[in-house]
Computed example of a mutant assay.
Amino acid sequence: MSTVAVMTMVLLHGFAGSRASWDAVRAAAGGEAYPALPLDLRGHGDRAHVRPVDVEACVADVLGALPDRPVGLSGYSLGGRVALHAAVAAPQRFSRLVLVATTAGIADEQERAARRAADDRLADALLAGGLDAFAARWSAQPLFADDPPAVRAAQEAEVRAGDPQALAAVLRGLSPGRVPALWDRLGALDLPVDVVVGGRDAKYRALGERLAAALPQARLHVLDGAGHGLLREAPAAVAAVLRGG
């Protein structure tokens, strides 16, 4: 059995998800036999009540949960941004990264300010209108426009299962407008990285191509026909990358 196949993989979910977001991927990777450590990020799942919600605290949580040996680290979307920050903060703790539909952040200051303002408004709308309205609004973004109905329904159910105060804190504290961009630090991250994107996810496919070009040991995997919600839509393909395929 290869080293990659037996390596423990720490798994970080996306916005409004939880460690359960990885269940289908883990099942496809081998179920209970697959060595995975899925974590709830602050503001989500069993850690919905934990404050503050910011990238420094999330990175500290991730590093504090690691075993005493180097492990693999994978993050989807928001979780991928946290994964990159953890890897930059403590590269010696990781032997491999798998970045799924994610980015190294927003570098332009005007874009950052605009995104902060937009996410603050979104958080206000969530608290004013409730989770049902927010879940429908979230899934109606162009990012998810071509998702199959079952994938969209699963995403909305995941959002509705969250805590509104917690998700509002995530929108504010982990907004790409507040989390520092890492593009200028990727060249020093000299460990194997698999970058996974959906073929019809034009925005994150472009970002994935940029990530793969900036990282010294990166491989780009484009999952044809899939969109942004890869953990829901293409779990077997994501599992194959996790297992080193």
Results as ranks from 00 to 15, higher is better:
Arg152Asn: 08
Val100Glu: 00
Glu32Gln: 14
Ala27Leu: 15
Gly17Tyr: 04
Ala57Gly: 03
Glu56Thr: 12
Arg185Tyr: 04
Pro91Gly: 04
Leu11Tyr: 07
Leu39Phe: 14
Leu39Tyr: 10
Phe144Arg: 07
His85Asp: 01
Leu189Asp: 00
Gly225Gln: 05
Leu122Gln: 15
Val4His: 06
Arg81Glu: 00
Tyr76Leu: 03
Pro216Lys: 05
Gln110Leu: 13
Ala161Cys: 03
Ala89Phe: 06
Val71Trp: 05
Asp124Met: 08
Leu99Cys: 08
Val25Trp: 03
Val50Cys: 09
Ala237Ser: 10
Pro52Leu: 12
Arg51Glu: 14
Gln141Ile: 13
Ala218Pro: 14
Ala212Trp: 00
Glu158His: 02
Val222Ser: 03
Asp224Tyr: 02
Ala202Ile: 14
Glu156Phe: 00
Arg210Tyr: 03
Gly31Glu: 08
Met9Cys: 13
Asp119Ser: 09
Ala48Leu: 08
Leu223Cys: 12
Gly229Pro: 02
Arg121Trp: 11
Arg51His: 11
His49Asp: 13
Gln155Phe: 11
Thr3Phe: 13
Gly79Arg: 10
Ala236Ser: 11
Glu209Arg: 04
Ser18Gln: 07
Ala125Asp: 15
Arg96Ser: 15
Thr102Lys: 01
Val170Ala: 02
Arg93Asn: 02
Ala33Asp: 09
Val151Ala: 09
Gly208Gln: 00
Ala28Gly: 08
Ala135Val: 01
Ala125Trp: 00
Ala48Gly: 07
Leu174Lys: 10
Tyr34Lys: 00
Ser21Gln: 13
Ala20Gln: 13
Val25Ile: 09
Ala48Arg: 03
Ala24Leu: 08
Ala154Ile: 01
Ala89Lys: 05
Ala150Val: 04
Val6Met: 12
Arg93Ile: 10
Ala65Gln: 07
Met9Asn: 00
Gln217Tyr: 12
Ala150Trp: 09
Val98Ile: 12
Ala83Tyr: 06
Ser95Lys: 09
Ala218Tyr: 05
Asp68His: 12
Arg69Leu: 14
Ala36Ile: 06
Ala128Tyr: 03
Gln155Tyr: 05
Ser139Asp: 14
Asp146Gln: 15
Arg160Ser: 13
Ala86Asp: 07
Ala136Asp: 14
Pro216Glu: 09
Pro149Val: 10
Ala214Gln: 05
Arg185Gln: 15
Arg210Leu: 07
Val222Asn: 05
Leu215Ile: 11
Arg93Trp: 11
Gly229Phe: 04
Ser18His: 02
Ala107Leu: 07
Ala101Trp: 06
Leu223Ser: 04
Phe94Thr: 11
Lys203His: 10
Ala226Val: 10
Thr103Ala: 06
Pro180Lys: 09
Gly31Asn: 04
Ala145Val: 09
Leu78Val: 03
Asp119His: 14
Ala5Leu: 15
Leu41Gln: 07
Pro235Gln: 08
His228Ala: 11
Glu32Leu: 15
Glu158Thr: 13
Gly30Val: 15
Leu84Phe: 07
Leu182Glu: 03
Ala206His: 00
Ala237Phe: 05
Ala202Gly: 15
Arg232Met: 13
Gln217Ser: 13
Ala236Gly: 10
Gly129Val: 02
Arg96Cys: 07
Ala181Ser: 10
Gly162Ala: 08
Ala188Pro: 08
Gly162Arg: 01
Leu126Met: 06
Gly177Cys: 04
Ala240Trp: 03
Ala240Met: 00
Leu167Cys: 07
Gly45Trp: 01
Asp146Val: 11
Gly208Met: 08
Leu122His: 14
